[in-house]
Amino acid sequence: YKIYPYDSLIVTNSISVKLPKDVDRTRLERHLSPEEFQEVFGMSIEEFDRLALWKRNDLKKKALLF
């Protein structure tokens, strides 16, 4: 996945969300650098992957990456 800054990946309720063209809309968190991922989620990507799907989705919603 290509890395993008968190600010360019957050999704708000506005209709005209302009995400970069090559971003996987269903896995926005994968486009964060490991350092920024840790900062946003408070855990590593590996720890995040071990969580239940509902928990990952809940965290993504709170981080505006859903």
Rank of each mutant, 00 (worst) to 15 (best):
K55S: 08
Y6F: 03
K60M: 03
K18Q: 15
K62L: 10
E35W: 11
E46F: 11
P5G: 05
G42R: 12
E47F: 08
S14K: 10
S8L: 15
D24N: 07
R25V: 14
D7F: 12
K21V: 15
N57D: 11
R27I: 05
G42Q: 13
I45L: 13
R30F: 03
Y4D: 01
F41E: 00
Q38Y: 14
F48D: 00
I10R: 12
E39Q: 14
K55Q: 14
I15Y: 06
S44G: 12
K62V: 09
F66K: 04
L28T: 03
I10K: 15
K18T: 15
N57A: 08
K60D: 01
L19F: 13
L53H: 10
V11G: 08
L19M: 06
L53N: 09
L59G: 01
D49K: 05
N57Q: 10
D22N: 06
S16T: 11
M43C: 07
F66A: 08
G42C: 11
A52C: 11
E29W: 02
P34R: 14
R25Q: 13
P20S: 04
N57H: 09
E46K: 14
E35I: 13
S14E: 15
K60I: 02
S14P: 13
L19T: 06
E29K: 00
D7H: 15
E29P: 01
P5R: 05
P5F: 03
D49A: 06
L28F: 02
L28D: 00
E29R: 00
F41Q: 00
V23N: 01
I3V: 12
E39W: 15
P5K: 06
K2V: 11
S8Y: 14
T12M: 15
S8N: 09
K60W: 01
T26W: 10
K62S: 09
Q38F: 15
L51C: 07
L53R: 08
L51T: 04
K55W: 08
D7W: 12
K62W: 05
E36H: 05
A52E: 14
M43A: 02
W54E: 14
L28G: 00
S44Q: 13
R56N: 01
L59Y: 06
I45F: 11
K62A: 12
P5A: 07
A63W: 05
I15A: 15
K21A: 15
S44T: 14
F37M: 07
K60E: 01
R27W: 03
T12C: 11
V40F: 04
Y6T: 01
K61E: 08
Q38S: 12
R50A: 13
L9Q: 00
P5I: 03
S14L: 12
L59H: 04
K18N: 15
F37H: 03
R25W: 08
S8M: 15
D49T: 07
N57K: 08
S33V: 04
S33W: 03
V17K: 11
R56V: 04
S8H: 10
S14F: 06
L28P: 02
R27M: 10
E29S: 01
K61N: 07
L53A: 11
D24T: 04
K55M: 13
H31P: 01
K61R: 13
Y1V: 11
